[in-house]
């Protein structure tokens, strides 16, 4: 029996707005095991980012219970249990790439020597060795996003929460980064929660695909991927891959997400 990392029971989140309450999430039940790669997919407004933010304790659910590493999400945040990758790289323009990766290490009080070692290690991990002294504007968008992943990896949290990290990149770069992300996941054995609205990306990356639907944001389907962990890019032409993609598409349709 593998360890449970994230467990959601009846999680709901209602925002009070001027136009009345908005149900961003309703009745979300989900278990994420250690080492899982879980993708959240669905149309805009289905609450996938909101749920990720709940796991990160950047939002607080109004109903249900959500535990991360066996504690409340807030306690997990204070224990620095996860690294978070945002939609934009969000590197500080006044810090070099190395300086940006050092930011969480400085905040968490690592020694100077350990900071330097870790920066070197994660730069290598995301294939940016030798770019530590460059400034963000000297790097392409894909390299910046890789640097932001390195920043999230630097302090060795077991969980990686990624919010459409490759959404702003073109497809060629995205394919390349997907491949690298899988390699990185295999090497580091992290538990990854990954928000996307690309069906091929979700199917290619995940061991578990959570299909969500909007109004209110809820889980429409959870698909355990039959694909092996070792995945070359051309696995995307295999019948198994196409079958999973098909089921994801069906799940999205069943959620009436294409009605409007």
């Amino acid at each position: 029996m593998p360890d449970t990392v994230i467990e959601a029971k009846g999680v709901g989140l209602t925002f009070q707005t001027g136009d009345g309450p908005v149900h961003a999430l309703k009745g979300v039940d989900l278990v994420i095991e250690k080492g899982d790669f879980v993708s959240f997919i669905g149309p805009s407004g289905c609450g996938k980012t909101t749920f990720l933010r709940c796991m990160a304790a950047l939002e607080t659910p109004t109903e249900g219970s959500l535990t991360v590493n066996g504690m409340s999400a807030e306690a997990a945040r204070q224990a620095r249990a996860y690294g978070y990758v945002f939609q934009a790289a969000g590197l500080y323009p006044w810090r070099t790439i190395g300086g940006n990766i050092r930011l969480p290490l400085e905040i968490m009080g690592f020694s100077k020597q350990e900071q330097a070692e870790r920066v070197e290690r994660v730069l290598e991990l995301v294939d940016l060795k030798g770019f530590g002294k460059k400034y963000p504007w000297q790097l392409s968008g894909g390299m910046q996003q890789r640097a932001s992943i390195a920043r999230a990896l630097a302090f060795d949290a077991d969980i990686l929460l990624m919010d459409e990290p490759f959404g702003a990149l073109d497809e060629i770069v995205r394919d390349h980064l997907n491949e690298q992300l899988l390699a990185l996941w295999a090497r580091t054995e992290k538990t990854i929660a990954f928000v996307t609205h690309s069906i091929p990306e979700a199917v290619y990356l995940s061991t578990k695909i959570v299909v969500m639907s909007p109004r209110p944001g809820r889980i429409a389907d959870v698909i355990e991927s039959p694909l092996p962990r070792e995945r070359p890019l051309d696995i995307r032409d295999s019948p198994e891959f196409i079958a999973v993609a098909h089921r994801v598409r069906d799940g999205l349709r069943a959620g009436h997400s294409y009605d409007d």
Partner: peptide, 16 residues
């Protein structure tokens, strides 16, 4: 907001 959220994920203090 994203840059402030990033610091929250590190549980950084207001002074940091």
């Amino acid at each position: 907001g994203m840059q402030l959220d990033l610091l929250r994920t590190y549980n950084a203090s207001a002074a940091q």
